[in-house]
């Protein structure tokens, strides 16, 4: 009923505006807070994944090194075997 009265219309308008602003500010704060917490959780999991990735990468590197070493040893052994086989045949040794 106040709406038709000069001044009161403005009062309600002002109140509504302030209420809207307060509501929006609260909503913004809520959404921002949720984003912050969600991002923090994502960062935490990303850190765990990064740690796991580093751990696996280290293992991979170590395995690669061991593989390379083994390959080198195999090559050396194969070279030696071939050499010995040649020598044996030259001596008339059946191998």
């Amino acid at each position: 009923m106040f709406n038709g009265i000069r001044g009161m219309r403005g009062l309600r308008g002002l109140g509504d505006l302030l209420t809207d602003i307060a509501t929006l500010e609260a909503s913004l704060a809520t959404v921002t807070s949720s984003t912050t917490s969600t991002t923090a959780e994502a960062d935490r999991i990303q850190a765990l994944i990064d740690a796991k990735t580093n751990e696996l990468q280290t293992k991979l590197n170590n395995l690669q090194t061991m593989l390379n070493t083994a390959k080198a040893a195999l090559t050396a052994a194969q070279t030696r075997l071939a050499d010995l086989q040649i020598k044996a045949r030259a001596l008339g040794i059946a191998v």
């Binding site: 909503s27 921002t32 984003t35 969600t38 994502a42 765990l48 994944i49 990735t53």
Partner: peptide
């Protein structure tokens, strides 16, 4: 700002879901 914040929240939630899936796949 709220619309932008909501978009940012949606992106953060999507990222979180993706990371959770990756973590699960890695056995973390």
């Amino acid at each position: 700002k709220i619309n932008n914040a909501k978009a940012a929240l949606a992106a953060a939630q999507a990222r979180l879901a993706d990371l959770r899936a990756k973590a699960q796949a890695l056995g973390i």
